[in-house]
Amino acid sequence: MKDPVVQFRDVNLSYGSRMVLQDFNIEIPSQQVVGILGPNGSGKSSFFRLIMGLNQPDDGEIAVLGHSPGWRNNHQIAYLPDRARWYGNHTVEGAIQWGGDLLPGFDSMKAKELAEWMEIDSSMRIDEMSKGQEARLMLIMCLARKVPLIILDEPFTGIDTHSRERIMDALIDYVTEGEQTILISTHEIYEAEGLFDSVFLINEGQVALSGEAELLRAEHGSMMQLVKKMSHGGRGL
């Protein structure tokens, strides 16, 4: 067993008086597609932000790829933020140029291939795109990087079916080729759950259930149904 990619020990996080993560413990195995599932507001995005060092925990220990989180560590992580938009004044080409200039491990050729394959016109301006097209571009900005860890926060939310399928295909393609660890959070898309090697269900700031996806399926059935149960007031499992 390799060292875990992400390790949290007794982490607490609060915004003002609101507890977001409470005694949060997790160990994410490497080289897998990992689903971080849970209802809205369960703490998934906060968990990711802690991994990126964008927010600071109240206490507890965090190790990401063997280091403490922060900008010094982020050259080896590709991160799709929650509800993000891309810079509206860029064209697709401009965004790829930006990636090549600023993102370590960004492969501009690969990005161009992906753009073509995802049916994104490279001269198009981002502020003239549909939400789905923009989402596809943002995914390209992450998948074109050669880094050991990729974090996608809600990559499917609010996106048309066509874009969603394109994104799924790109992810599957990526997993077939690579040896990266991919963390994907989602709270709604049933179809995405076939992607996961392992799954962590998060509820009310804690890991409520975790394990290999196939084993969880055998024991509990569909994971999205579990999430739904949690979000409809079913506290605990």
């Binding site: 050259h75 992580i77 933020p81 938009r85 509206g88 993102l103």
Partner: peptide, 11 residues
Amino acid sequence: NETVGWWLALP
């Protein structure tokens, strides 16, 4: 413009 995540994640 909701680009803050990209901005702050820059290494």
